[in-house]
Write a protein that binds this DNA or RNA. Structure first.
Lengths: 193, 193
DNA sequence: ATTAGACCTTAAACTAGATTAAGTTTTTTT
DNA sequence: AAAAAAACTTAATCTAGTTTAAGGTCTAAT
């Protein structure tokens, strides 16, 4: 079954029976994405909720000066979408790009709405998913307004150790809101102690 | 009916019928909160989801140096809770304090769970509420990693003009992640142009 | 196998924002 | 109404992080 990875993930919340799984299987599409390929670009309406089976993505915005700013990473068993664009059908200001060759499972908006009605507990599951992401984001805001770049780097490495050794440091710097040059300085300082 | 302000707010999502309203009325408690009084403190488990009827609150954390950092404000018709502590029954690291004499409506966790079961669309409503807050928070993260303090101040004033003229500038500085002295400098610079 | 394009590092000069400190005004409490 | 406490401002000094620039390494594509 294509959606097996999603079902495994849902077991942590509220497990699905065979009938529910079959309903979902019909509405989910698997897709391969090459390294550097984008699945969302500025100006597009975000049509899908995507689940990462294999690989890694970043969501970023480009400012007036042309500089990219990483808002979020998503690796195996994580969900990624521009939730604002997705639910309100407005053009996105963001990009979602594969940082590695990847495999994802995608659900379209109307299919997700159909599933919300036919499998009511799915609403509960997606509510819990977003609540967890909300808490993570809130902690990140707190860090941003209260900590130095070094402290933020250390807690990024601690919290996302799987990502930290897998991502180019340019991408991490962009996520932390500092220049790659300064991250290099921080790393040197840390290694010399 | 005590919960009238909540019902008005829900009309924007999915309106309640009389029966549903009565169920909810039984599970909601009204409470007056004095200026500077806290409804949540570090170490406590956050027991309530709170709806602001009148007044204004801030949620903040205190760092090792004793400095307070504002994570969120909530004024009329907004919800406030430490969602991490509330759903996982873990001690909070945050404070919620009234910045003005206030009136709130509170729902306890078990009551909310009862209502989620007896009024299924309530799950949908709270999912949408948190999704909107998620988008706001994501924009704030983007601002924090990509903009100067002046730009962040200007977009705070634009987005929350109702709050901006109501809050002491110390509180705004703490929310923006800068010192009150530097905010004063920014304001002077803006007014002289 | 070679070249182009990312990626990483170092270092000097610069700037946004912090810190310290002192003085003024406004608000709150008694 | 007076006293205390909180809030706002200005300015000098300091520092975390940026900018610019150059050289070096690694990876990927022809």
């Amino acid at each position: 079954m294509t959606i097996q990875p999603i079902l495994e993930e849902f077991k942590k919340h509220l497990p699905f029976n065979d009938e529910e799984a079959a309903l979902m299987e019909n509405r989910v599409v698997q897709r391969k994405v090459k390294r550097r390929q984008t699945i969302l670009q500025e100006g597009m309406i975000c049509k899908h909720y995507s689940f990462v089976v294999k690989g890694c993505f970043r969501m970023y915005s480009i400012d007036e000066k042309g500089i990219e700013h990483n808002i979020q990473f998503a690796a195996e068993n994580d969900w990624i979408t521009d939730i604002g664009s997705f639910y309100s059908d407005t053009p996105s200001k963001l990009y979602i790009e594969a940082l590695e060759p990847s495999v994802i499972l995608q659900i379209e908006k109307l299919d997700l709405y159909f599933l919300y009605i036919s499998i009511p507990k799915l609403v509960r599951i997606f509510k819990v998913i977003i609540e967890k992401k909300f808490v993570e984001l809130q902690n990140r805001v707190l860090q941003n307004i209260s900590s130095t770049a070094q402290q933020r780097y250390l807690s990024f490495v601690e919290q996302y150790s799987n990502l930290a050794h897998r991502l180019p440091s340019t991408q991490i710097a962009s996520y932390l809101g500092i220049t790659p040059e300064f991250l290099s300085k921080i790393r040197k300082e840390l290694s010399s102690r």
